[in-house]
Amino acid sequence: MSRLILASGSPRRRELLVDRLGLDVVVSPADVDESPRHGEAPAAMVQRLARRKVSAVEAEMEDLVVAADTVVIVDGEVLGKPGTPDKARLMLQALSGREHSVLTGVAVKLGPKGASGVDRTKVRFRRLSPSEIQWYVDTGEPLDKAGAYGIQGIAGIFVEHLEGSETSVIGLPLGRLAVLAQSVGASLTDYRRTGT
């Protein structure tokens, strides 16, 4: 029986597939080096990393493997996961009152067939006060998220305008994923949960 394997440990990506789409998903995080290459463009990097993740997961020929990688870009600088409260604070200050881009690379693999693409979404934050930034950092939510925020969480109140896919900003553009799956001969509807 074929399976949909998510090559990511991200709870947000799993929630999009399981809770939003109602799919039956096997989570199998890929262990790959996510370091950028010297001079590599952000779009090329997220697509390369998504491809590496699908290739790193053990799967049967009939399994659809899905992977993604997301970065936030402001002023040409890539903002990854901050990891510390101080870095999160600096990132949020850089995003305050400005537009930034979110790039998500997506890759799928079904047997020998593979496909990948990059989704770009523009997000504008309203101007944030120092106390709002500190309050958000104190929640701990920004520490493990690209660009130090999760649009599906508390940081949704910071967003003034969004142009593109909200699910891409969360970490997995569902529309692009469906198209990529079709291009390798799969349909996401084949992986719906049955019964309870």
Rank of each mutant, 00 (worst) to 15 (best):
R3L: 10
L4V: 09
A7I: 03
G9L: 13
R12G: 02
E15S: 14
L16I: 08
L16K: 01
R20G: 06
R20W: 15
G22H: 10
P29F: 06
A30V: 02
A30H: 00
A30M: 05
D31P: 04
D31R: 12
D33M: 12
P36Y: 01
H38Y: 14
G39A: 12
A41V: 11
A41G: 09
R48A: 00
L49R: 00
A50Y: 00
K53V: 02
K53F: 06
V54R: 00
V54E: 02
A59L: 12
A59P: 03
M61A: 15
D63R: 02
D63H: 09
L64N: 02
V65E: 04
V65K: 02
V66T: 01
A68L: 09
A68Y: 00
V74H: 07
V74N: 04
G76C: 10
E77R: 14
L79D: 03
T84P: 06
K87G: 07
K87T: 11
A88R: 00
A88T: 05
R89S: 14
M91L: 08
L92N: 04
L95D: 10
E99H: 06
E99L: 06
E99R: 13
E99M: 11
H100C: 12
L103A: 08
G105P: 07
A107S: 10
P112E: 15
G114H: 04
G117F: 10
G117L: 10
V118Q: 01
D119C: 15
V123C: 06
V123W: 04
R126G: 14
L128E: 05
W135G: 13
Y136I: 10
T139R: 08
L143Q: 05
K145R: 13
A146V: 03
A146S: 12
A146Y: 01
Y149A: 05
Y149V: 07
I151A: 14
I151P: 00
G153W: 05
G153P: 06
I157Y: 10
L162P: 07
L162R: 01
E163H: 13
G164P: 04
E166Q: 13
V169E: 06
V169P: 01
I170S: 02
P173V: 03
L177P: 00
A181W: 01
Q182V: 10
V184W: 01
G185K: 09
A186Y: 00
R192Q: 15
T194D: 12
